[in-house]
């Protein structure tokens, strides 16, 4: 009986543990893998990301200077981010927004391919 009284009192004086959702959103942690973003200016079209992707969703075209990803096939494993020598792909902590049409994201690079020496940048 007293136990029940305890529970009732506790529930009366403590607020809800859930969030009032649309008004207050949960922020993902800084380390969350939400989606990948391309920084196409850095890309040297080495195709390493295409080779490493387990879902085969990246297509790199050196001639056309395009880099594309099918975000609906991407499993957000982060392998491409890990292997990219020039930080041309970065991980974003926010999840992808819903869309109406399923289309790949295509990025086109203007001008000559940058000459970034992967080793000099000291990445990986």
């Amino acid at each position: 009986m007293f136990e029940m009284l305890n529970t009732i009192l506790k529930n009366l004086f403590s607020g809800p543990v859930t969030r009032p959702y649309p008004a207050q959103r949960r922020e993902p942690f800084a380390s969350t893998r939400g989606q990948i973003k391309s920084v196409i200016e850095n890309c040297i079209f080495c195709m390493r990301c295409q080779a490493a992707c387990p879902a085969n969703c990246i297509v790199v075209d050196r001639k056309e200077q395009t880099w594309s990803v099918d975000p609906y096939r991407c499993i957000v494993c982060g392998m491409c981010v890990e292997v990219c020598p020039t930080e041309a792909i970065i991980m974003n902590r926010h999840y992808r927004d819903p869309v109406k049409h399923r289309e790949p994201i295509v990025k086109h690079q203007e001008g000559p391919i940058p000459k970034i020496n992967p080793k000099a940048k000291g990445i990986n």
Partner: peptide, 9 residues
């Protein structure tokens, strides 16, 4: 999520 980056996978 904090330590591994994903909740399920």
């Amino acid at each position: 999520e904090f330590t591994e980056g994903g909740r399920v996978m």
